[in-house]
Amino acid sequence: MLVLLAVVVVTVVMGLVMRSRAGRARPAAGDVVGVAPASHFGEKATLVQFSTPTCARCPATARQLDALAARHPGVARLEIDLTERPELAARFDVMQTPTVLVVDSALAVRSRFGGQPRPAEVTSSLTAVLDQEHTGA
């Protein structure tokens, strides 16, 4: 009985930690040069989504990011199936799908989301990139 209780407690702690971290913006470095042809990137910013065929939240994330990109001219969404590009999973240290990168016009990674991004956080990440592009900073 104690063992069962311990397993349940460990699971609940794991679940709470995963839930609190899922979809939050994290600062990120690096760039996405060479990930896709230049024409696939947005003029001002790109939402790069890493997916896999067995990813439960990837289709919903794709629709969410498409809607977000549609509201901001010059922003594109780029979805990459990691089973076709396994080397990218190692390069970007992807441990879960979807993983979303907010990338600026110079293809530098500005923020990163593990799991389906929280709408308010991905919007503010994108807005921060666009504001900076606008002011030319």
Partner: peptide
Amino acid sequence: FDVCLGCLMYVWLVR
């Protein structure tokens, strides 16, 4: 928690 651990493991297999 609606977390699909098995689905996440697919990425680990890809890696």
